[in-house]
Computed example of a mutant assay.
Amino acid sequence: MWRRSRGKVLTWGRGNSGQLGHGDMDCLLSPKIVMSLESYCITQVSAGWSHSGFVSDGSGNLLYGFGSGKRGQLGISIDRIKSVNAPEIIRGFDDVQIITITANADHNAALSADGELYTWGRGFGATSDFLSPQQSPSSLKFSKVALGWNHALVLSDNGEVFMLGGCHHGMLSNPEITTLSKHLSDGAVLERVPGLDGIKVVDIAAGAEHSAIVTEEGVIKIWGWGEHGQLGLGSSRDESSPKTVSLGVEVERKNGTVRVYCGSGYTYAISTFCS
């Protein structure tokens, strides 16, 4: 999936659930413009396992979704929908300005201009699926959200990291915690990541079942599923608490920035320096 600078959206690849948005269930071997989005200025796109989401700029600041909807990840109806093959408006954002949407597996998350967190689709942990967007009741304001297959990381404006989800492979840092801090509307929980007291975080990322953060000092900390070496700690062990990754190079933190990105079973970092 790709968005041109003027807001046009092109999709290609697997389309068996309608996730390409061309009004059919066909696969495409080359990019094709999503004509039903032609009249909108699309500012952001997101792609899950078999569904897609979009944010449009301008009047109403609308969100659209298409593809598989069996877990409620489209957010377009109060009923479960197998799939749709053309964009439909995501419900529940009539009076909300959404600035970012992200998808992974069978769920979505979005942040409003006011820093409010919304989630929908497959539930986190033992919670049921959300068929429409649910707002976190937390009084915190958030600046970034990252989704894994079964979990989410959320970064607050003051540099704290919170999480949603189960405890597969220790990806959420502390599987022993049973009393959790901040609750979503139907029982999902927003829990502060332990072991980061006094540390300001500036970036987050989530893989399939592992998590990574970057501190204000440019240090990468990582935890969760490690089978493929994606934790970068010199082994294939799972880790249940944040561990510092040695990049093997000297990082000039005074004038540089470090960003981290997670694939399903791999991780990469980018160091940028200003002279």
Rank of each mutant, 00 (worst) to 15 (best):
G13T: 00
Q134M: 13
I33G: 05
A103C: 15
G53K: 03
K200G: 09
W12A: 04
L190Q: 10
W49Q: 10
E239N: 15
C41K: 11
T272K: 15
K144E: 14
V202R: 10
R14K: 06
G125S: 02
P87C: 13
S185L: 14
S59M: 11
G248Q: 05
Q73D: 02
I270G: 03
F130M: 14
V249A: 02
C41M: 09
S112D: 06
G48T: 03
W120K: 10
M25I: 11
H210D: 04
P87L: 14
G75C: 07
L74W: 04
I90F: 01
I78L: 06
G21A: 12
V45W: 00
E38L: 04
E191F: 04
E239G: 12
S30G: 03
V214F: 08
W49N: 08
D238H: 14
V145A: 15
G72H: 00
G72S: 04
G198C: 02
K141A: 09
S83L: 00
F66W: 08
P242V: 14
G166T: 02
R91P: 00
L247P: 04
I99C: 13
K200T: 14
C262D: 05
M171W: 06
I99D: 11
H169P: 09
A208Q: 04
I33T: 14
A109G: 15
P87W: 11
F162K: 01
D129R: 01
E217A: 12
G18S: 01
R91E: 03
T272L: 15
A103V: 07
I33W: 06
S68E: 13
C167Q: 13
P133V: 05
V260R: 05
A188Q: 14
L196A: 01
A109Q: 11
G159M: 06
W120E: 12
H168G: 11
S50P: 00
A110Y: 12
I199V: 15
M171F: 08
V34H: 10
L131P: 11
G75K: 00
V45T: 08
T119S: 14
A188I: 08
G218F: 07
G248T: 05
S156C: 01
W120H: 11
V201W: 05
G72C: 01
S241N: 15
G170N: 15
G125C: 01
G123F: 03
G226L: 06
H169K: 13
S241T: 13
N61T: 08
D186Q: 14
R14F: 07
E252D: 09
G224P: 13
K200N: 10
Q73G: 02
V201I: 15
L247S: 04
S240K: 15
F93K: 02
L233D: 10
R192D: 00
L28T: 02
A105C: 14
T178D: 13
T11W: 03
L180Y: 10
G58P: 12
P137N: 12
R259Y: 08
G229S: 07
I76A: 00
P137W: 05
K82R: 07
L37I: 05
S185A: 14
D24L: 07
G187R: 09
I76W: 00
I213S: 07
E239R: 15
A212S: 13
G265L: 06
V45N: 02
P137C: 07
L247G: 05
S46P: 11
Y64C: 03
